[in-house]
Design a protein around this nucleic acid. Structure first.
Lengths: 202, 202
DNA sequence: TAAGATAGTAAGTACTCACTCACTATTGCG
DNA sequence: CGCAATAGTGAGTGAGTACTTACTATCTTA
């Protein structure tokens, strides 16, 4: 069982490249990840990368596609089959947090990509990811209002912004402390306050 | 009245340099701001910078000191003399938001600096800024609990994390839309939900 | 007003980056 | 097996980076 076979079929090599980027982003500033670092992390020379990707930008685009697919699939799976919209929101929140703890580089990559001035393909990928994420939030929040679980006067747009910000705040806090594990501990405590802001008072 | 006098005393040149960095960060990825870009923005050759700063890192450190001073002074001024802790929190929130709208590059710089692997002087500056910010939040939140304005069971640490995250969420949303003005519009709506999560139910 | 101190210029240097290309090793199929 | 297609190597290249240095312009003050 060879851990690092020299030759890989193109699609496997592309996947390995993307996974290398995600792993490297967990430990260092994503914008400082060089093609040389990616290549050496997967025990291949730098030139080999450009046999599978047109340029560095294409690598980032593929990485953000990887993220979008997995993150949306995971939160969808977590929320599926849960009756209560509020409970579904919580499940979505916790599975998102779990994803971030597993891949701490991901929020950094997304934030870094968003603040690019030029609309790179990777940036557009992040934008559509967040937009699709927002659709799911809106749906659940509206359902919650409809069934009386959430406050009837709830500002759904603001609640969606705050949902994302809540996770962003956890990420920021974990970067301050320098340990990702904190996120898992703090997530339920922070969500509790968020939830309290949404609930209908009865 | 000359807008760009060739010769400036050292301290004025240093201030102009820092302000250039803040302005440039409003329009582009902070980690892509080169010394050449800073110099040309202030109509000076690149070499002139290194007469006033030891290296690029020192420029960033000075920039983060500038931020820390102004941001803390502003939120302190906003909260000063307000009786109700909750109202003080809101004033602090709104003045912070106003600061971010005036200097949209600042949150990007802070986030970018935090995710550095190495503990640069600038990174440490951001860490102490956020820590000092946290002290203020804790104080107000505890006061709010004591006077009965906030829920007696409130998790103060989580509430502080969420406060920062709330602003972070607004920043993220404005980067998505590509217009900073949104922040000002959305801030009260998002804060309303946050506040609802803190308040004591009576 | 002369001269020393201060601030800015212009042309460098060494280095790192993304990307290329001629060549070689491996793989899989007729 | 033989050979064509595929994947990887290693030594480039040029552009862009932070930083240096020898020189010059401008300010300040005795």
């Amino acid at each position: 069982m060879e851990r690092h076979p020299k030759h890989l079929p193109a699609d496997e090599r592309r996947l390995a490249t993307v996974e290398s980027v995600i792993e490297l982003a967990a430990a260092q500033n994503p914008s400082e990840i060089t093609t040389a670092a990616i290549a050496s992390h997967m025990r291949v020379t730098q030139g080999a990368l450009f046999r599978h990707f047109l340029n560095k930008e294409a690598i980032w685009q593929a990485a953000m596609e990887w993220v979008a697919e997995r993150l949306l699939a995971r939160v969808d799976r977590a929320a599926a089959g849960i009756e209560s919209p509020l409970a579904a929101l919580e499940a979505m929140f916790m599975s998102h947090v779990e994803f971030v703890v597993e891949h701490p580089g991901v929020p950094r990559m997304m934030f870094g990509e968003l603040q690019r001035a030029e609309p790179t393909p990777a940036k557009r990928m992040v934008q559509t990811l967040i937009q699709r994420y927002g659709v799911r939030l809106h749906r659940l929040l509206e359902q919650g209002k409809a069934c009386g679980e959430l406050s009837s006067g709830l500002d759904v747009e603001a609640a969606a912004t705050l949902f994302v910000g809540t996770i962003q705040g956890l990420v920021m806090q974990s970067m301050l402390a320098g340990e990702v594990g904190r996120i898992r501990r703090d997530a339920p405590r922070v969500f509790a306050i968020y939830e309290r802001g949404l609930r209908s008072t009865q």
